[in-house]
Amino acid sequence: MNRRVFIVMAMLGWGVMAFGVLGLFHNSARTHPGEWVKWFLGGALVHDAVLAPVVFGVALLLGRVPRPWKASLQGGLVAAAVVTLTVYPFLRGYGRRSDNLSVLPNDYSSGLIRTLAVIAVVTAGFAAGAWWRGRKSGEVAGAAAASLVGDRRDEGL
């Protein structure tokens, strides 16, 4: 850290944050600061206390997947999980209303299934590619490489 750069940027940044907080209280009839702060900090809490441990749990389980499939499976699961998380509010139809059919007009479960299918196909393609490359380079080369890197298995964490 460059101390001088940090001190200048920290003063500027905290100034900008103070402006945001002032606006929050100045406009409290609309922002409801007490309610707002729960949502503002709640996201970090949910991420650190729920989402991150779940992801680490899944990552640990993936540690046992054999080498040629592992990277592809990890990538596919990341993509699938992020897409599902993003579409989830639409899928549940939280914003739907009987007087306005133009809100959330799509069939999101079908859309999500089709998207996950595409991700699954791409994942399988990458896994097959990795398996094929592994076969071509042969077991001997693979073993040599493994001994070179001390057969360091990625624990996934």
Partner: peptide, 10 residues
């Protein structure tokens, strides 16, 4: 809007 100013400051 308030959240955006605070986040950009951070």
């Amino acid at each position: 809007y308030s959240g955006a100013w605070i986040t950009i400051g951070a």
